[in-house]
Amino acid sequence: MTTPQVQRQIVYRRPKALNDVPTHYCPGCTHGIAHRLVAEVLDEMGVIEKTIGVASVGCSVFGYNYFECDFVEAPHGRAPAMATGIKRVIPDSIVFTYQGDGDLVSIGMGEITHAAARGENITVVFINNAIYGMTGGQMAPTTLPGQKTTSSQNGRDVKRMGYPIRMSEMLATLDGASYVVRRSLHDPANIRKAKKAIRTAFEVQHQGLGFSLVELLSTCPINWGMSPVEALKWVEEHMVPVYPLGDYKVSPTVAALRIR
């Protein structure tokens, strides 16, 4: 009797670019997924040794603990400026920022806008979960109308507190921006699309094609007061209608890009 020949194949493992340490993120938070996608892309492109990450202020402040590449930590909102300083001095490096919506859309509005306008050859991973996570769930510029947070306890009243800012749409108006897209992390199909977009964004930089940004709709179950599953559902039902998924800017050179 012969034993059947079993071919073993590894189909899933921790990317080399992702350190084997527990993260500080809350259970059910999608930061872990976003980190993994970025790490997979760095692995696939083989660029980890020339990559410098720029962490921001907010929940991703400890991002530098999780990626196996050089990392710096920026003041609140200033990651695109720091990334500019690094990239200009070492043009053949890969420089990415990893920023939340409180960091990027609020205090960092100036830096992100001008980095995009300059066509700075960096990649921005932008996590939009419509709330300030790290400080305990305050209203962000991206908080939805009516959404309750610890600093809009009766719901965001747009008459007094203004309207959510659609960052990808805004940045897409800038000539300097080459690749600006919005994806979501609320289910596997969308996660696969997000991965593809992150890969494209890093390829845009690798080939010197200019500014790239991937906005990722994300969850904050703890501060939203939901279970992880409810939070994923909330992204789909409430966030996607306000922040439609799609490609907001794909410059002609980026459109011609073929990723092997």
Partner: peptide, 26 residues
């Protein structure tokens, strides 16, 4: 060499910060 006119002093000093992290004279 690198010259960049930033959009503000906030951005300028943080560009310096990034470049200084590379060990460059900045």
């Amino acid at each position: 060499r690198i010259f960049l006119q930033a959009e503000s002093e906030l951005a300028a000093i943080n560009m310096v910060y990034g470049a200084a992290c590379t060990g460059a004279r900045v």
